[in-house]
Structures are given as C-alpha cells and as structure tokens.
C-alpha cells in the first residue's frame, strides 16, 4: 500500500508539473493585468495545434515545436489582448474577464473551423516506464517534467535578473509606482501577455503530447489550471507552481484512496478548505 501511495504521489508530481506551466501563464497575466484571463484554455489549444503543426506537418523536432507552440499562443494572446480586452480597461477587471471568455469562444472555434474536431496525434515515440523496485516512472514524463522545470527556471531568471523582468514585478506590485520609475506599462503588459499566453500554449502542447490536439484540449485543462492558481494565490508565480503540484497529487491520491470519478471534485474541496484558512491562497497577497 505504501508503495502505491508513493507511486500515486510521483504520478501527481509529474502531472502537477505539466499543469504548473499554464497555471503560471494564467497567474502571471493576472499579476500584471489584474484580471483572470478565461481565454487561457483556448490559448493552450492553439499552442497544442501550433506544436502539432510544427512536429507533424513540418517535421520539426520537439524542441522547435515547443518554441512554435509558445510563439503561436503568445501572439494569439497579445493580439486578442490588444484588439478585444485592453479597450475595456476602464470598465473594470470583470468586464475584461467576460471579454476574455468571448475571446476564448472565438479562438477555440477558429481552430475548429481550420482543423475540424479530429484529434491530431504527435509524432513521438512512446517509451516503456523505467522501474525502480515497485515504482515506475516514464522517461517521457521525465522529459516533460524537465521542460516544465526549465521553463520555470528561465522565467525565474528573467523575472529576477533582467530589466524587463524587474519592470514586470514592479508593475505587478504597484503599477503607479512603476510608472513613476519610468516603466512603460503598455510594454510590460504586452510582454506579460506574450509570455503568459506562450506558457499556456506550451502547457497545451505538453498535454497534447500525451493525448492528442483537438479543439477541446485546453477546455479539459482549465478547471485544474484555475484550481492550481487559486490554491497558490492568484498573481503569485511560486504559488501557481505549488498549487499545481498539490492539485496534481491530491487528484492522484483521490483515485487511489477515494473514487476516481471524483478527482476534480476533491481538488475543489481542498481549495475550499485551504481558502477558508487562508482566503488569498497559499502565497497570495494577505489583504483583500
């Protein structure tokens, strides 16, 4: 029994890491632009298709396909932000959130119009798991895990050691002050949206690698992404990572110890409990 619990936690760690990528994207956009971007699911779908197109149609290796997934979703995100959401800045965060919902509907159906509903599988060899005694781990998932970790590390470096990164953090902390210090909010917002949308895209491709790309790839993911971001505290990048890992592990333990069909539900019960104790999530801002 102990080994099966360890195995479930290990599985949760892997699925949580993949979940963390789009969750970081979602929370980063929230941190700087101050609204929950509900188009994140469709952005993940666009990333999955961009990656699939690069990998299968163009025959690119996975690394390059990840880059296209990032770019494709990032560009879609910034275009939608500029054309649809940003003009509503004065109407408040919730109007922007509703608008992003509409953007999500449009993007998902543009994908559907172009590619139809048939799932598109990637061209990657599937490997058997490596066994350590009772435990097993998939080399592929280790790779995905590594991609996710690498992205997080890159992001951490960018946020802490580049001028733009510092500007982003400053804007997230206090936009007024950041403006006074000479940070151009529009540029910061644009870059945040590209990075946030791009991360969602990579997350979509990571998921599609294991399933297939179809117009609902992102939609299936969003409940868990939202859950992870809220659990960690909206706007907190470390929070999104921890939240995603926790959600991943709680869901796998639910399968093992409770009922597999209540995976999503138990995740939300955990959120409710955590938020009752800490209303702003694990790493969220205290006041509010």
């Amino acid at each position: 029994m102990l080994s099966s619990i360890v195995q479930a936690l290990l599985n949760g760690l892997v699925s949580g890491t993949i979940l963390a990528v789009p969750a970081i994207g979602f929370t980063a956009i929230f941190a700087v632009l101050r609204y929950p971007n509900f188009a994140i699911g469709s952005l993940a779908t666009i990333g999955a298709y961009a990656g699939w197109y690069a990998n299968v149609r163009l025959g690119w290796p996975l690394e390059a396909s990840f880059a296209l997934a990032f770019l494709g979703a990032g560009i879609a995100a910034v275009a939608a932000e500029w054309l649809a959401v940003r003009p509503l800045e004065k109407s408040g965060a919730l109007m922007m959130a509703i608008c992003s919902l509409a953007v999500g509907i449009v993007l998902e159906n543009m994908v559907r119009f172009g590619f139809g509903n048939d799932p598109r599988g990637f061209n990657v060899p599937l490997m058997r798991d490596i066994r350590f005694g009772d435990l097993r781990i998939s080399p592929q998932q280790v790779e995905n895990f590594a991609v996710a970790l690498l992205l997080m590390a890159l992001l951490w470096v960018a946020l802490n050691f580049t001028r733009m990164g510092r500007a982003m953090r400053a804007t997230a902390d206090n936009p007024e002050l950041a403006r006074l210090k000479g940070v151009e909010p529009a540029t910061v917002a644009a870059i945040t949206v590209v990075v946030g949308g791009g991360l969602a895209g990579v997350g979509g491709m990571l998921v599609a690698l294991d399933t297939a790309a179809d117009p609902l790839t992102g939609f299936r993911l969003i409940l868990s992404v939202f859950a992870a971001a809220v659990l960690g505290g909206l706007g907190s990048i470390p929070g999104a990572v921890v939240g995603a890992l926790l959600i991943g592990m709680v869901e796998e333990l639910t399968v093992l110890l409770l009922a597999p069909n209540y995976r999503t539900a138990i995740g939300f019960v955990v959120i409710l409990i955590v938020l009752t104790i800490r209303p702003s999530g694990l790493f969220g801002e205290k006041s509010g």
Binding site: N11, V14, S15, S138, D210, L256, P260
Partner: peptide, 20 residues
C-alpha cells in the same frame, strides 16, 4: 469496475489500479 474521469490528460494511477 473503475469509473474514471475522461477529461484528464494522464491516467497513470488508474492504470496502476488496473495493474494491481
């Protein structure tokens, strides 16, 4: 019988149950 959640991108723990 194992009823699983069909929206999940990974079903490793479910498969572990099946293997056991």
């Amino acid at each position: 019988l194992l009823i699983y959640d069909d929206k999940k991108p990974s079903l490793r723990t479910e498969v572990d149950q099946a293997m056991r």
